[in-house]
Design a protein around this nucleic acid. Structure first.
Lengths: 227, 227
DNA sequence: GTCTATACATAGATAGAC
DNA sequence: GTCTATCTATGTATAGAC
């Protein structure tokens, strides 16, 4: 699998995401016509992620968001009760998508070695297809209120757990070396995150997403494979 | 070398850092008595890093900083001309310290293999000794004005270059395998940064700084060493 | 050198017209 | 459903007393 194939398989349409948000936030969305909601949520999300790829969510004023989304300040407050809730909503949704896609992709194969390769590729390709989203999620998580931060932390550990499980399975089956699994998964996650955190660097060096994915797989293999 | 030894060697006293800041910012510091300046700069830096380990520099108001540092809002403006300049000052200083210590430590050995080990340990130990500083530097770099961001980017590439040079030297000498040096250095940097970016995770797992350093060295060896 | 008081700007949020 | 007008809070920065 290469990136161009992945993009077709995981066709995360904006309508789908907005629909999911609507489902889970009926309480705070005051507008009744579903079509309108979907339409405007897309505008709001696009504008937010766009602005926040250049400055922080904090520094983005409701006035900025109004200008970029095309909705008035008053209208915006029909879609969320306050600015912080908009942040929570976006981060929660982002995490869900990542977990959904990752587990779905892995379920298509059985051997640990194949699973590891698919998991690495899926993570990198997904973060490439939704780069502003991933970046936003990582950077802004710390600005959540304490109780919501717990969810962000759990989510980090949850994706890490996916890798831990795969590697342990491989060790049990005798195809992987018996390494420090938790530390190794943790560093693997750091490497995967680097792809979207330092997008500017890889872009300027013309490192393609496929090249990066292949490289990560190769170094994991050189650490884990026996022989 | 283990962490406890490193801490003694690299005795980065707060007075030294404040002194360096004073040297380089005489223009914007209005207070004349050097002793006073050093004393209050330490208060300001400590308070800023402390607050910013919990929320963003943006969200930290001058009122917050005044309360935490013990200086009045008016007095604070005797040490910097505006809030953004305080940010620039802190980030610039932080970068200088890292580069100074890293290059100094590496210069003590000659073989590429030893150099690589020392560079990895120095980076991790330094980020441990100055964890709030490192965290602040990474997270807040993006909130600089465009022209200052250039410096932050150059600095990221500069530390990466240290690793690139060591690995290339090792390949030339025939002790390291001929890998994709730039990509490998880049992922190594990501792993090193993870130590201070996810401090909460490693702390909760009781991973010691020495254990982490040894692990990173081990995986780099398993990728690079021949045989 | 440091403080208090305050000017001035900009933010988030709401009410009521359309 | 959406907009405009506006209230209120909070922020940065400065001036002048001590």
């Amino acid at each position: 699998m290469v990136y161009n194939e992945f993009k077709k398989i995981v066709n995360i349409s904006k309508e789908d995401i907005s629909g999911q948000i609507l489902e889970q936030n009926r309480a705070s969305i005051k507008v009744k016509k579903e079509k309108k909601v979907i339409e405007n949520l897309i505008k709001i999300i696009d504008a937010t992620l766009d602005i926040c790829s250049k400055k922080s969510f904090q520094s983005m004023s409701i006035r900025d968001l109004s200008a970029a989304s095309g909705l008035s300040r008053g209208a915006l407050y029909s879609y969320f009760t306050n600015k912080e809730e908009l942040l929570i909503l976006l981060l929660t949704q982002g995490r869900q998508i990542v977990y959904q896609v990752l587990t779905e992709q892995i379920s298509t194969v059985t051997s640990p070695h194949e699973k590891l390769k698919i998991a690495i590729k899926s993570h990198i390709y997904l973060s490439e297809a939704m780069d502003t989203w991933f970046y936003f999620n990582y950077i802004e998580a710390r600005n959540l209120p304490k109780n919501e931060q717990k969810n962000a932390i759990e989510s980090e550990l949850e994706t890490e757990k996916i890798f831990i499980d795969i590697i342990e399975e491989g060790i049990a089956e005798g195809v992987f070396k018996d390494e420090n699994v938790v530390l190794l998964s943790s560093t693997l996650k750091a490497i995967l995150q680097d792809w979207y955190l330092k997008r500017w660097k890889y872009r300027s060096r013309k490192t393609s997403v496929d090249e990066y994915a292949d490289f990560v797989i190769k170094i994991m293999e050189s650490i884990l494979l026996i022989g």
